[in-house]
Amino acid sequence: MKLDPSFIWTAFVQLLGAVPTTLYITVVSVLVGFIIGTAVALIRIYKVPVLYPIAVAYVTFIRGTPMLTHLLLIYFGLPVLIDGLSAYFGWSFRSVNMPMIGFAYISFSITAGAYMSEVVRSGLLAVDRGQIEAAHSVGMTTPQALRRIVFPQALAASLPNLSNSVIGMLHGSTLAFTVSVVDINAKAEIVASTNWKFFEAYVAAALIFWGLTVLIERLTAVIEKRINLYNRGGVV
C-alpha cells in the first residue's frame, strides 16, 4: 500500500464539512458544563444542605466513569425515561423524534459539568477570603460580591485549566460517532471507506483537530493577557 498525499488534501476539504458538528458539540457541552460546574462548585463550597451530597456523588460518579459510558447510558437510558414520562403525562413527544446529536449534547454536558466543577472550584478557592470580606464590608450582598469581585478573579485563576477542559471536550466529541453523529473523525472514516485510504483520511482529521486546538490555545493566551492585566508584578 502506498501513501497518497493528494488524498490527504481531498479528505481535508471533505472533512471541513463536519467541523461545525464537532464545534457545536464542543461549544454546547462546554457552555452547559460550565453552568453546571459553577452551580456544583458553589454547592460544594457553601455546603448547601440536601444538594451537597448529590453534588459530591455526581462529581465522583462522572469522573469515575468513562465519557463513552456516559454517552451509552444516556443513549439507552434516556429514551426509556422520556417515553415513560410521555406515557404517564400523556405528552405526544417520543424519544425517536429526538435528534441523535441531542444525546451527545446531553451526555457530554453532564461529563463536562463534573470536570468543570473542579476547575471552577479550584478557581474560587484561589481567591483570597479577604476579597469577599472586603466586598461585604463595603455593603455588597453575597451575590453581588460573587459576581463582581470573586468570579472575575476566579475566572482569571482557572483560565489555564478551563482551556484544558475545552480541548478535552473537543477531542472527546469524537465519541459521538458511536451514536451515529458524523463529526470530523466519523467523517474521516466515511471518506476513507469509499477508497480504503484510511491513513490519509485520519491524517487530515488529525490536522484539523490540531488546528482547532492551536486556535483554542491562542484564544486562551489572548484572553489571559487581557484579564490578567492586574497580576503584573505577580509570580507569572
Partner: peptide, 11 residues
C-alpha cells in the same frame, strides 16, 4: 472597614 491585609479588590 480597613483591613490589616488591605484586601483591595485585586482586579
Amino acid at each position: 472597614m480597613v483591613f490589616q491585609q488591605y484586601n483591595l479588590f485585586r482586579h
